[in-house]
Amino acid sequence: MEHFLTTTAKLQTEQATRACETLQNTVQLASAPPAPGAMAEVLELAGASYKRAADLQIGWLRDWTRWGLYAQSLDGANTVPKYVERVGNIALQAQAQVNAQAEQWSELMDNVGVSYGFWLTRQLEARDKGGS
């Protein structure tokens, strides 16, 4: 149990630290006129994030449609054990899809956070090198 608590706390602390640093860097970057092309890069990043989210949702819709087709009929369940297995499969498939989608969404959120943080760091480094 202790491991669960310490691991959860460690991951949350890292995420919070990263979020604070990103916020701090955002304020720092916004405090001076943006570098040429910076706004375009931010928009590109937002657009890419939106496209990944849209792609995920298209995939999820496809997965739920397949699940719906599987779950809509119990015609093949011609014995009690088969019926029990089939009902169990419907529930397990739904649960597996929810888990997979939660994981995929979490990965995308992580990716957006890391990517934006990385981009900010590079912008600030470039500004420092430019002496402005």
Binding site: E44, A48, R52, E107, D110, N111, W119
Partner: peptide, 14 residues
């Protein structure tokens, strides 16, 4: 870094 910068970057700048 491996997952998001090295394998699956969102843009050229990341």
């Amino acid at each position: 870094n491996a997952l998001y910068v090295a394998m699956s970057p969102l843009t050229e700048g990341t």
